[in-house]
Nucleic acid binder design. Structure first.
Length: 455
DNA sequence: GCATGATCATGC
DNA sequence: GCATGATCATGC
């Protein structure tokens, strides 16, 4: 045997020979050309470790308790973040029927995935054949203690939802590091039954979110020194409270205070445009505007102001899209859908009182309910694509140019509006005309409704 | 006061 | 200089 079956370190050592090799380098001469079907993980199992791929309940290297994972990363244009994980890491499939009888520390998830042998290869978009990608990193990975605590909370949240008969409403935005991602086709016949409801749910698997994989890649694998400051400095806090509850508890101590008082108390510049967000982060004990946990969990902070009449003045904006890219996307894999599905939002909500003082009202975590995402938001998205393909109508009235993209009055949840530096900040339409950059927005009335549901 | 286009401000 | 979150401005 080329490696000791019982020793994780021996397996890792053997696997490190893969570094700086392509998949083609591993292919033995006498074997038929690998078809490229299936995944590269199976390829490594078969040709490098020389065992037949399986889908056991046990880890791939059962005796050593090591699960093999072959996963891509990619190069970015960004100088500060030169590399990212290309995708989430998909782990075992969730069996809705049996998982409701499990508990975390004896779960099938932890049994299979507590020690991972991560093999990172560089996905090069200019290289047509997967076999020519280079393997760059090979390393055993065990969840750090503080991460495992949050993963436990995530696991419990997912199982709780299944126990409530809501497997069909599972979404990656529900949880922090460990997600329940869809796996397999979206055809009706791939839907699965669930124990506490007659509604069939798409098959799902546990996964480590791509933002969490980014963190693993940059900090544990590439060993970058620059990390963000964590909010939870002492893991024992998470024994008593969930991460979310702890955060909300800290903010709640300052409910009712006005923004001027808060700025003074937490030494935030009162003229700063994002002072409302900054105050919340200072309350959480952060010196900067980034939190390690938020980065890993893909939590985006959004501040919301409610007017004294109880309404939200502004809609919520998202990054602008390129018309020519948007029309080539499919809804289920579209940038906008994936963003809404995978992002958890942290709302900091302020309200103007009758004297026009801005008061910290509450904070809450929110993510887009999947049933709204795949109905109302989908309609807006499809309509937008259709209009762009057919040719946007633009009408100039005075200084403003009006268009026929879906507006806030057309749909209760989402709409399209300009979102650029100014009206000269444009992208080209497929027909070559320039148009001010546009983005999807969430309607203020919808946000308000979601905030009220939380009460 | 709503609807929708236009623009500001901060951080990287 | 751009991307992105946040907010302003005008006409009905």
């Amino acid at each position: 045997m080329k490696y000791d079956l019982y020793s994780p370190e021996s397996i890792e050592k053997y696997a490190k020979q893969l570094i700086n090799k392509t998949f083609r380098d591993i292919l033995p001469d006498k074997y038929e050309e690998y078809k490229g079907k299936g995944n590269l993980g199976q390829f490594i199992e078969k040709y490098f470790f020389e065992y037949e791929p399986n889908s056991d309940k046990d880890p791939d290297f059962k005796e050593a308790g090591v699960e093999l994972k072959v996963t891509p990363f990619k190069k970015n244009k960004s100088k500060t973040k030169p590399y990212s994980a290309k995708e989430r890491l998909v782990l075992n499939i969730i069996n809705f029927e049996s998982i409701i009888h499990e508990s975390f520390y004896t779960s099938s998830f932890l049994n299979k995935n507590k020690l991972l042998l991560l093999i990172f290869y560089l996905h090069d978009f200019d290289v047509p054949n997967k076999l020519d990608f280079f393997i760059k990193y090979v390393q055993l990975f065990k969840y750090p203690k503080e991460d495992l605590k949050i993963i436990e909370q995530d696991w419990n949240k997912i199982v709780e939802k299944i126990r409530l008969g809501k497997a069909h409403e599972l979404s990656e935005g529900d949880t922090m590091y460990l997600g329940a991602c869809t796996k397999g086709s979206r055809k009706k016949d791939s839907y699965r039954s669930q124990p506490y409801s007659d509604i069939k749910a798409p098959q799902r698997a546990f996964s480590l979110k791509s933002t969490y994989m980014n963190y693993i890649l940059r900090n544990y694998i590439m060993k970058n020194k620059k990390t963000y400051e964590p909010i939870i400095k002492d893991t024992s806090i998470l024994e008593k409270k969930s991460f979310e509850d702890f955060i909300l508890y800290k903010i709640s101590k300052h409910y009712g205070k006005d923004i001027d008082t808060l700025c003074k108390e937490f030494q935030v510049n009162n003229n700063s445009k994002n002072k409302t967000t900054q105050v919340a982060l200072r309350i959480l004990g952060l010196k900067s505007n980034k939190a390690e946990e938020f980065e890993k969990a893909n939590i985006k902070v959004k501040s919301i102001r409610i007017n004294s009449n109880g309404k939200i003045a502004e809609h919520m904006s998202f990054p602008s899209f390129k018309f020519t890219e948007l029309i080539n996307e499919q809804w289920y894999t579209s940038t906008f859908r994936l963003m809404l599905e995978q992002t958890k939002f942290f709302f900091i909500i302020y309200k103007f009182d009758e004297n026009n003082n801005l008061i910290l009202e509450k904070a809450m975590f929110w993510n887009m309910p999947i049933n709204i995402l795949d109905t109302e938001v989908m309609k807006v998205w499809l309509k937008t694509v259709k209009i762009i393909k057919e040719g946007v109508q633009m009408t100039k009235i005075g200084k403003k140019t009006f268009n026929n993209l879906p507006s806030a009055s057309d749909n209760p949840v989402s709409h399209v509006r300009p979102h650029g530096r100014d009206s000269n900040d444009t992208y080209l339409l497929p027909d070559g005309r320039p148009m001010p950059k546009q983005s999807f927005w969430l309607n203020n009335s919808f946000i308000l409704e979601q905030i009220k549901k939380d009460e």
